[in-house]
Nucleic acid binder design. Structure first.
Lengths: 131, 131
DNA sequence: GAGTGATTTCGATGACCGTCTATCCCTGCT
DNA sequence: AGCAGGGATAGACGGTCATCGAAATCACTC
């Protein structure tokens, strides 16, 4: 995954923004991720997984929230997985899904590069993603 | 526009996240916005407009960046406009488009509610979200 | 007010997407 | 080994979307 450029410059509202526009290739990459989020079911799936205890959920925890068949849920989970937004791990009978928070956080940064762009006093204590 | 709940709780990585999952209606709203961003052309359009001098651009500034016909660009601009992501204002012959930074910033917040959640040392020297 | 350039709207077409039913794979249990 | 259940895959169908060419709209100019 590349380090994409921000969509909006930190103060795009009132300046002649110098942030370079997205390259065509980066746009394809990014659009794939946003397209994966561009479905209410998938959005709720991500939300449900993130909100579930331990930050992970198995399919049986998710299907109940929708009026959809199992294969349809499975299809949406696959789309999210191929987009790199979630990961699935089999533990025994069940498959547990987990949100790739760094990827989604990355998308958020591209949309709005941290309303507080580069505050050096801020040390984001992250980087505990087991990949 | 409603004040939607965040997709990820601030520390969803390592906690049994208490943030409530999206409601079905909110998900429909949100998904529409992300779907609008789920196309490379539209993503680049937003980026180009944001990066253009003064934060606004007319169609004539945009068409050159693509190998697409005028109507196609116009179609994508319309999709973005209907999604509330940009606004168009006619000034004389040309129509100038501008990015709705608040809306996009809102999307970013929903994706990742400030990766550095509540750092008091970080003084976000802006907070002009009028919505 | 007719001409010209910029932009949108209108239909049409081909591709893609979401959903379903039916079937298959994997794991754990008897 | 056989069976049951969670979950994924395959194939199909209907709807939506991206793109185009052509026509219509808008605004400035002569």
């Amino acid at each position: 995954m590349s380090k994409l450029l921000p969509l909006l410059s930190p103060s795009a509202t009132h300046s002649n923004a110098p942030s370079a526009p997205l390259s065509a290739e980066d746009a394809v990459d990014l659009a794939a991720a946003f397209k994966a989020l561009g479905d209410p079911v998938r959005l709720r799936l991500v939300s449900l997984i993130a909100a579930h205890e331990g930050g992970e959920a198995c399919v049986c925890d998710l299907t109940g929230a929708f009026d959809l068949t199992g294969p349809t849920i499975s299809h949406h989970l696959k789309v999210l997985r191929l987009a790199g937004l979630i990961t699935g791990e089999r533990r025994g009978t069940w498959i547990y899904y987990r949100v790739q928070t760094e990827v989604i956080g990355h998308l958020a940064e591209i949309l709005a590069p941290t309303t507080t762009p580069l505050a050096p006093t801020c040390t984001p204590e992250e980087s505990d993603l087991p990949a």
